[in-house]
Design a binder for these strands. Structure first.
Lengths: 129, 129
DNA sequence: CCTTGATCCTGTAGCGACTACAGGAAGCAT
DNA sequence: ATGCTTCCTGTAGTCGCTACAGGATCAAGG
């Protein structure tokens, strides 16, 4: 059994974040030691790692929680997991496309800008309707 | 001179957002009519459009404000504009790269998942250290 | 003149996912 | 006894809005 600092080190989830997850009901409340401090089992640390992995993949906390619940359920069927993942993949794809559009637009805007100009063509464009 | 609703319609910036920009000091406080309502000139609406364009390009509000100030200054030299834009372009590029990595990782994870599986390989991976 | 509906006002709270304190109580090592 | 670290609770800040609540005012129609 580990204190919150150790759980943080082992899971890679920040101390404040662990307490936040607890407040939000993402992870179950840990037991407390005689002095009132939180105590974490290796299983509890496993949950934190799981959440960390989900977040690293860009899943929202709500999705991460859903995946965690799926992981905990007896029959962890792929169907629901795939559903969440595919939605997320689509969102990522859309975000990439959007950013690429921004990138292209911004590159075009800056192309005509050159140091020393008195009147900036980019500002000019930004002022347009 | 226009009321806030008309300014919103003409600039494409939401009413609440206009008031928010005012609170935050992004745009100057408009004059008030006798009954205390905000009144916007075409110039003021131009500022809102400018901000809208900046935000559409993904600039942070702080950057947008900086660009707006540059636009208003007498000598609007390209140097400072380019500086802000290039930083933003770099940030966009980094974000795209990051999202592509996520996309690839997630695609690999879901590849081994198939409907009807009793034990989901993706959840398995998420549980790992 | 009265009512209805649209628009406006201020002020506050909520979103997501943390992060950063403040202010205090333990524990541990010297 | 002292310092240092870790822990606790509770609150507020981040970003850029957005959504109310609760009220005032306006313009048009009957």
């Amino acid at each position: 059994m580990f204190a919150i600092g150790e759980a943080s080190r082992r899971s890679g989830v920040g101390i404040e974040t662990i307490r936040y997850y607890e407040r939000e009901g993402i992870v179950p409340r840990p037991e407390r030691s005689a002095n009132g401090r939180r105590v974490y089992s290796t299983e509890a640390i496993g949950l934190l790692k799981f959440l960390k992995n989900c977040r690293s993949l860009g899943f929202s906390l709500a999705d991460a929680k859903a995946l965690l619940d799926l992981s905990g359920s007896a029959r962890s069927d792929c169907d629901a997991v795939l559903d969440v993942s595919k939605r997320h993949l689509r969102a990522i794809g859309e975000k990439i496309a959007e950013l690429r559009k921004l990138e292209a637009a911004l590159e075009e805007l800056t192309a005509n800008c050159s140091a020393g100009n008195t009147e900036c063509p980019m500002l000019d464009t930004l002022r347009r309707s």
